[in-house]
Design a protein around this nucleic acid. Structure first.
Lengths: 342, 342
DNA sequence: ACCGAGTACGTAAGCGCTTCCGTAAGCGCT
DNA sequence: AGCGCTTACGGAAGCGCTTACGTACTCGGT
């Protein structure tokens, strides 16, 4: 690894401002014990010189690294990249650095990444993305994170409970309910669900919402085809083919995320099945392209960018006695992929 | 910022192994000057204790941080998030950390981010995304990066020349040419170009390709409507409206990236203009959703993920005498948004 | 037997910063 | 004028590590 040379040091700033480095440090950190006048002079000089503190020295001396570690399943998935965008936004504002790690939807790899971040002494860890089915892996992650928090680390998770940490929770159940109620209002009674990998929290919660809405209408999820496939586009295709083959009576498909919905739409288009004339389709998340699909997708909007911000916000607050939970709102966005039963 | 507690220190390992911390350090770093026997003992103890060196102390003392700084215009833009995915992939394999920064398409902010990364003593900086029109900003960035490289930092850029660094260059001109030739083959003679912000390298190069293809066919770019708007979806909408209004004779639209093409398609759909029957549309990049638009988008595929990997690869090699340039391939992907002139 | 080179290891000097502590002023009070 | 108290600042001790340098010891050559 190359080794960049020395940069501007605090002592340079201190000398130029005619103070000791102790004073300079206090002034820049905004701590008290420095007169307004001197503090301003130091800050002024610092700005002129373009001084940026060496984070390594700072961390070594002071304790905490001004870095937030962000673990996502996959950055090049719009759901996660929008969340990451939110985290980075707020981190930028707070002058924090962001380290992004992929978990690749693999609990082992995720755990390794968490350990890694802890070893890096990051001050904050944010884990985005649904939990995995495996209770053992989940327990292990929880334990590691608990240890980290005991030594003062802060953790927030997005879309995941049971990790014993502050959490930002998308309104998965209510969203699933709203989506399904919308279809029922349109007259649909035979609704198939394209669900993701069975164990994922997200899938379970959204499915619960679907079930609740059906129940409200005197229907039962048990009577509807529910197909579990991978929680990505391709999974949507596979599930759709199965549904078309085995359940021709279906008039609406609920895909539990937009990626799957895209797979559903692609398959229907190839088969020449009219949407929404013959089949209504809904997704979940409202990733930014949802509006550009054809037909544009009816879905539940989650405020992904805000979710990222909120998670970091939570993590930056002092630890509360018990884990905080922050529910995100959700919003039913009706577009062209849903219509009345003909 | 929270402050994780103290961990195991090198001295703990050294004591347990009955050596000095200097020897322990050498043993763990695999440097010579330590007998095999002692080295093994130290490593053994270290493993037993689960020791992980404090990266801050290490960096402070030793020099370089095992971190690569990645600057993108916007993480939640598929073009960049796919590139980021590639960088992260390779970084993971090499056990490097990745710090992602937004430039937000603002040269000042980008420069600030570069400075920031340099101050962070990252060992590698990768700048992804087209250069800006402003030659002053460009020169400044070049200068800062040159200074960084002089002190041993490594830099690679993606899709940008003139920064005096190793570069991964998408085949923008050839791509623009291929796209345009495809339209000409289909019989189109009145082709409008939806171009991005005038100054961007990418725009200039792709436009040059378009011009070349037109010239090959005995046509001239000067006779075609070229509309410059923002290099994003909304820009595509604005440009399309202008084209429809002022140039009704146009039968094909070249959008210089997929985001703009999405705006173009959306607008045409709203106006009820048949694609490709009445109007053919092409994009550039082949972001993953391009295949899911309706109609699916004819575009040039760039290997974004590979581009990210290649850039990091270049940066990890020792600096060459002169900047290296690596051209990416490109591939014309013909889908449903283009057809013959009727 | 002595010398020089080589090897294995310890000592200690930082890396750049934060922060504890000490000191010198300035203040109002008796 | 003398007392304590506060406030503004500087000195200096680390944070945990790497590494230049020093020291002791070994060994081959003469």
């Amino acid at each position: 690894m190359p080794k960049p040379g020395p940069g501007l040091r605090l002592i340079d700033v201190a000398q130029r401002a005619g103070v000791s480095i102790a004073t300079a440090s206090r002034a820049l950190a905004g701590r008290e014990g420095v007169s307004e006048e001197v503090a301003n002079r130091v800050r002024q000089v610092s700005r002129e010189l373009g001084y940026v503190a060496n984070p390594f020295a700072r961390t070594l001396a002071g304790g905490a690294s001004p870095t937030v570690g962000l673990i996502v399943h996959q950055v090049d998935d719009p759901y996660f990249s929008e969340i990451a965008g939110g985290v980075i936004q707020l981190a930028d504002e707070q002058n924090l650095l962001v380290q992004i790690c992929h978990s690749g939807r693999d609990p082992d790899h995720e755990l390794r990444q968490i350990r890694n971040l802890i070893a890096q002494r990051v001050g904050v860890i944010i884990v985005a993305g649904s939990g995995y089915g495996d209770p053992h892996a989940e327990a292990l992650a929880k334990e590691v994170l608990a240890g980290y928090q005991d030594t003062g680390g802060r953790v927030a998770v997005i879309g995941r409970h049971a990790l014993g940490t502050d959490a930002v929770l998308p309104d998965n159940e209510a969203g699933g309910r709203a989506l399904t109620a919308h279809l029922i209002d349109l007259g649909h009674r035979r609704i198939a669900v394209v669900a993701g990998t069975p164990g994922l929290n997200t899938v379970i919660d959204r499915l619960a919402g679907v079930a609740a809405a059906l129940r409200d209408a005197g229907l039962s999820l048990a009577d509807m085809p529910v197909v579990h496939t991978d929680f990505v586009r391709e999974g949507g295709r596979v599930a759709t083919e199965k549904i078309l083959r085995d359940h021709p009576e279906v008039t609406a498909i609920v895909a539990l995320n937009d990626a799957m919905a895209m797979g559903v739409l692609a398959t229907l288009r190839e088969r020449g099945i009219d949407v929404p004339g013959r089949m209504s389709v809904v997704g979940f998340d409202d990733v930014s392209v949802a509006a550009d699909l054809a037909p544009s997708l009816t879905t539940i909007r989650l405020p992904m960018t805000d979710m990222g911000r909120m998670a970091l916000e939570l993590a930056l607050k002092p630890k509360a006695g018990r884990p905080r939970r922050r529910a995100t709102g959700h919003q039913l966005i009706v577009r062209d992929s849903t219509g009345p039963v003909l």
